[in-house]
Design a binder for these strands. Sequence first.
DNA 1: GCCTGTGAAGCTATTCACAGCT
DNA 2: AGCTGTGAATAGCTTCACAGGC
Lengths: 210, 210
Amino acid sequence: MTSEKVIGRLSLYRRLLKSQQALGQSHIYSHDLASLAGNTAAQVRRDLMGIGFSGSPARGYDIGSLIEAICRFLDPPVPQPIVLVGLGNLGRALLAYFPRRRPHLTIVGAFDVDPAKVGRVVMGCRCYAWEDMERIVSETGVEVAVLAVPASEAPAAAIRLVRAGVRGLLNFAPAPLPVPEHVHVENIDLTMSLEKVAFFARRGSAAVAG
Amino acid sequence: MTSEKVIGRLSLYRRLLKSQQALGQSHIYSHDLASLAGNTAAQVRRDLMGIGFSGSPARGYDIGSLIEAICRFLDPPVPQPIVLVGLGNLGRALLAYFPRRRPHLTIVGAFDVDPAKVGRVVMGCRCYAWEDMERIVSETGVEVAVLAVPASEAPAAAIRLVRAGVRGLLNFAPAPLPVPEHVHVENIDLTMSLEKVAFFARRGSAAVAG
DNA sequence: GCCTGTGAAGCTATTCACAGCT
DNA sequence: AGCTGTGAATAGCTTCACAGGC
């Protein structure tokens, strides 16, 4: 209970709920949330059971308090600072993608090997020197890093980040990261995803992935 | 057998094998490939069994012929054209990320709503007019599209692409795509991934995701 | 009636463990 | 000895199906 997949879906539910809330809805049935999320009513109910949230058979789930419950469950009690490692095309796109000031997760800085980028502010985010990574990460207590460097640099960068106290990595490099057991790595392998789509496009059946 | 996950791992194995091959290795044991891929020897053996590939107890698997076998299995018999929809920050980063001329999957064009981009060549890729999407996609027989548009535009774009013959979508927009059963959608939800990492960074245990 | 909450069943994916080979 | 190939066992996830409530 409360596995990797459930966390992903809770995050998804929260976003869908917020958009329904913005549309003026106040309650929602498991069935409707499921169809927004692309899964089944039974799964929605089970996921919500997992975080101990209850709805009413009459009105379904109260959207406002469900969002609150998911936030209590998912969000850190105190805002969590994040760093971005690698300010290439992908790094810059990620900075543009993630809202600057989000409630609980904020990208507080970036690092790049290119000295020309150091000291500059890219997409509203300051770039620090490559060598200062350990110092800044450990001093500011950063525990999550986004790795958007070339595959060749990724393992070394990961090791340095972990030594500085990082416990979670969102890794865009197609390279295995040599990290200890207690560090959570989420790999986003774009080449693999594209190859998967291309493969299944030539077959029947649909599917969804997180 | 030959599920979603297996395809992802085969794609990963192939890349790892190529890099081992480049290092001069000619054979590899399931155990070693597993440790590169971050999974277990039994799983590697089972995956390879799935594509009917055999190794020898003495030398393990022959890297060259294993790569070939995976290619035969994963790659389309004829090169597959792909289009990119959305030339914002993320779209441009993706163009930079995917090798221009890759053997079997080639991004043959892009589309964007912004008329200023139409006709220009961005990152070596020509941008076509938004309205011409259906025509060009169906005329060139494109079956796979990468969706890198804002969430608000994604569903409509997906519908148009599917009508033009697309059967596989790599979707970066955090929105559910209303596509028929036979279309394969692979969602890459960056916000969800980041929230997952942040969540697990505060717990023990590691994990890997495709 | 149609909803939620949930034990139980069903499925899928992974791992075990061992026969067979070299 | 250490490997592969694989049936059998296990673990994990999803769905079924129904009791209980409005």
